[in-house]
Amino acid sequence: MEMKDFIEHFVEQFDETPSVEVSPQTHHHEMDEWSSMIALSVMAMIDEEYDVQIKADEMRNSKTVQDLYDIVQSYLNK
């Protein structure tokens, strides 16, 4: 799994945020367009792209895109 691809998939879930705005350090909960619907989409994207079902509290407790990436990576390493 590449961070670059992960960010690309992540950004696809937004209607307006251009990819330049998103980096591993982005705090996704603080993004303008962030909503429970986007959170649901990100979880569905992770399921579809990486076959990983992250838990709702993992989604909620992750602060940055890097955190999310690490969670997915930890499932992939299992």
Binding site: K55, A56, D57
Partner: peptide
């Protein structure tokens, strides 16, 4: 067990 968390 769903993907919607308790908080919401």
């Amino acid at each position: 067990s769903t993907n919607i968390d308790e908080e919401s």
